[in-house]
Write a protein that binds this DNA or RNA. Sequence first.
DNA 1: GACCCGATTGTCT
DNA 2: GACAATCGGGTCA
Length: 271
Amino acid sequence: MRQKKKLAEAEQQSPTDTDQMPSSKKAYLGPRLTLGSQRSIYFCQNPKDHSARLGSEFFDQPAVSLARAFLGQTDCPQVLVRRLGDGTELRGCIVETEAYLGPEDEAAHSRGGRQTPRNRSMFMKPGTLYVYLIYGMYFCMNVSSQGDGACVLLRALEPLGGLETMRQLRSTLRKGTINRALKDRELCSGPSKLCQALAIDKSFDQRDLAEDEAMWLERGSLEPSALAVVAATRIGIGRAGEWAQKPLRFYIRGNPWVSVVDKTAEQDTQA
DNA sequence: GACCCGATTGTCT
DNA sequence: GACAATCGGGTCA
């Protein structure tokens, strides 16, 4: 497949990264905090390489809890790190997620307890990636959570590092003939956009986010966002009946990298 | 096999 | 806001 070939090429080469952190960040998240002695039970040391990597304990919680934990409901937004074949690291903090609860959830691929080769990773241990192809051309990335067939969809990232590489990956992989330069906020503001920006494809399916060498999660270092998380209905699941109405999408209020803003939900969850 | 649908995105009007 | 793109996976005969 052409797209797969491009991803393979991205693994091999990436441009020199000299980009800075987006300037609009401070406007809504306030000053950065340093980690200092801040540690949680989820914080683990990996002497091999990733000192701030989150371990498997972090992922071992129910889907709703994990979906909120990615956004830093109780501390700060977590950072997804992708290391390409040439050593380039792409970083972005998670600003939007959706929880899929498993067999009971009519919107989940595991509804009714369906277990197929495609969604097998939904039933694997918490922290396992579930990557699938949608509409024949896009990938979506989930992280399995506690609970059989339950997982969390990563919908949007706020890019923190490697923006020029992300821009190149997005421009190369996306559809359309007009090759205008993408704005920062167009890089990772959607489940498939972030997969393109981080060069994530089906080969990541069933990998363990707690152990993988090419991608991991780090404890974020921005200020806590406990009061800024909005709970809204999930996107693109109109046929899921009453489950389509449940507030299982979570995002950081006011964050410009969120894919879809729900003003009604924001009024219902006034900070 | 045949057929239908989709946890999306980008373009056009 | 409408709609096309594009194909793997699920379902059914």
